[in-house]
Amino acid sequence: MMRRFVLIAIPYLWLLALFLVPFAIVFKIALSDAAIARPPYFPQFDWVEGIGAFLAELDFENFVWLTEDDLYWKAYLSSLRIAFISTFLTLLVGYPMAYGMARAPEEWRPTLMMLVILPFWTSFLIRVYAWMGILSNEGLLNQFLIWTGLIDSPLTILNTNTAVYIGIVYTYFPFMILPIYSALERLDGSLIEAAEDLGCSRLQAFWLVTIPLSRAGIIAGCFLVFIPTLGEFVIPSLLGGSDTLMIGKVLWEEFFSNRDWPVASAVAVVLLLLLIVPIVLFQRNQQKQQEAEQ
């Protein structure tokens, strides 16, 4: 009995101390005032004065501030927009590829699978960096386009939202492929044959049979791309321009450049609230799928 208790207690306490408590601190600081002090916020928790006095000092000023300053609204909205658009683009790129993999000869599939996963093991930072040399004004893409004669002067791609979309699609598209692939692989080929026998054209069969049957995979893939994209920091700060607003970047700058900890914490709290909806929907989708399998 003792052993079971210890086994439960160790990981439990670890997560309480290093996940839940830090979280509570973020909430607390979000409700504090900025102060020129170390640490730079007020009030600080004081066991002697007790919780009552502490709570009396808290206020929602930082959240009011977030609603008043245009920057934050715009950053939240533009994060949502960028996340939506790039999820959609990732689906457009990922679906045909997952489909091709699922239709490939069976003995190829493990290799194809490994080829999709392999880049995922290499550093995220390096994969984003790789695009900087390609997309810049003197970059290879512009050199190539000028060489083919399609354009006369280089296009500005790096440091725009277009570069951010490319970066997101590139780094996250294994997340889109894997769930769609596993849905398509299980799909019974005779269903499509039946649809074709019953007079569907290829395209109709694809639209009426394949797509609906891979829906769970599509939904899972979209969430797996959408959720991490919303809080993304590396891609907008390396590929995006100064006008690329994403909330992860704003939080980072608020904290490291402006050193305004209470506002940074308030931004974090709102970002979290924003994420709860897609996370709950994703959980539901997964649960429904599991139940359907049983």
């Binding site: 290093l18 408590v21 830090p22 979280f23 601190i25 973020v26 600081i29 959720i227 991490p228 919303l230 809080g231 993304e232 920091f233 992860g248 939080l251 980072w252 904290f255 900890w261 940074a264 914490s265 974090a268 970002l271 979290l272 994420l275 996370i279 994703f282």
Partner: peptide
């Protein structure tokens, strides 16, 4: 599913 910026910020504050 937690954004890294939030995890990082919260641990630093701790």
């Amino acid at each position: 599913v937690m954004p890294e910026v939030i995890t990082g910020l919260s641990l630093l504050l701790l």
